[in-house]
Amino acid sequence: MILSNNEKAIGVFDSGLGGISVLRQLKHQMPNEHYIYYGDSAFAPYGEKSKEEITKHCFEIMEFFIQHGVKAVVIACNTATSACVNDLRKAYPELPIIGMEPALKVVADGKKDHTIIVMATHFTLKEKKFHDLMARYSNENTIIKLPTPKLVEIVEQNKLQDDVLVDETLHEYLDPYMNKTVHSIVLGCTHFVFYKEKIKQIVGEQILVVDGNEGTARHVEKILKDKGEQRDDMDGEVEIYNSSNEPYYLELSEKLLEQDLK
């Protein structure tokens, strides 16, 4: 059966399970759409891999989506976006490919003398894409790069419910900055959205904690609306795939999809 573009799915992928937080936001924003999620848990975490390795896996995932006839692809991973979003767009010019980057612009635009912490993977923080973004705002603000790889591992190992481990890890990363004036924290990895409420509790209401999920979902919705390809008259669907053969990852994906992120 040949599907119209309206009926086709939106592909969403991540290095593992962090992108489920983006999928949740997309579902909230566009509940009628059909989504295909692909987690590359067999090769996670991307944040510790080379650009060449990440790019190779992203192209393989894109071919998976092409075979499934998607109408758009969301790279629900800051690291993968940094590594190869431009290469993917060149290779698939007919397909809208929406990447993610740390939401630094949201908190820094028009600000002066603000201190902003950007929590992300080592790869995202060292890449030219983030360096260029940071350069736009670092003259008038203090931007602190904070790699937090253990937070990715906790999600992937299904340890989010281990409150002691989560609290100890968050305090390990954040406590060195709590005696300083910090205005905003940017969650520059989709895995970190699962910690958003706990981070708010630790740092207090005076510090703004932001992620890029909502803005990404709005952007995808606008693209589909402009192309006249929204799926408005059907019930929403979600298919989840994973590069790992372990059924654990599919089960955990379903669990995270239903979790209340607030």
Results as ranks from 00 to 15, higher is better:
Ile20Met: 03
Ile20Gln: 02
Ser21Tyr: 10
Val22Ser: 05
Val22Cys: 10
Val22Trp: 01
Leu23Arg: 09
Leu23Gln: 11
Arg24Leu: 09
Arg24Asp: 05
Arg24Pro: 03
Gln25Met: 14
Leu26Ile: 03
Leu26Met: 07
Leu26Gly: 12
Leu26Asp: 08
Lys27Val: 11
His28Met: 14
His28Cys: 12
His28Pro: 01
Gln29Asp: 14
Gln29Met: 15
Met30Asn: 07
Met30Trp: 09
Met30Leu: 14
Met30Val: 06
Pro31Met: 03
Glu33Asp: 12
Glu33Asn: 08
Glu33Trp: 06
His34Pro: 04
Ile36His: 08
Ile36Pro: 06
Tyr37Asn: 05
Tyr37Gly: 08
Tyr38Gln: 01
Gly39Pro: 11
Asp40Val: 03
Asp40Ser: 11
Asp40Phe: 02
Ser41Cys: 10
Ala42Val: 13
Phe43Ser: 15
Phe43Gly: 02
Phe43Asn: 15
Ala44Trp: 01
Ala44Ile: 09
Ala44Leu: 13
Gly47Ile: 07
Gly47Phe: 06
Gly47Lys: 12
Glu48Val: 14
Glu48Arg: 14
Glu48Thr: 15
Glu48Tyr: 05
Lys49Phe: 00
Ser50Thr: 15
Ser50Glu: 07
Glu53Trp: 03
Ile54His: 02
Ile54Trp: 05
Thr55Asp: 07
Lys56His: 14
Lys56Phe: 10
His57Pro: 04
His57Asp: 10
Cys58Asp: 11
Cys58Arg: 00
Phe59Ile: 09
Phe59Lys: 03
Glu60Pro: 02
Ile61Gln: 07
Ile61Glu: 03
Ile61Cys: 05
Ile61Thr: 10
Met62Asn: 02
Glu63Ser: 07
Glu63Asp: 15
Phe64Gly: 05
Phe65His: 05
Ile66Arg: 12
Ile66Phe: 01
Ile66Cys: 04
Ile66Ala: 07
Gln67Tyr: 01
Gln67Arg: 15
Gly69Trp: 05
Gly69Asp: 15
Val70Asp: 04
Val70Asn: 08
Val70Pro: 03
Lys71Ile: 04
Ala72Met: 00
Ala72Leu: 12
Ala72Asn: 04
Ala72Trp: 02
Val73Ile: 14
Val73Met: 00
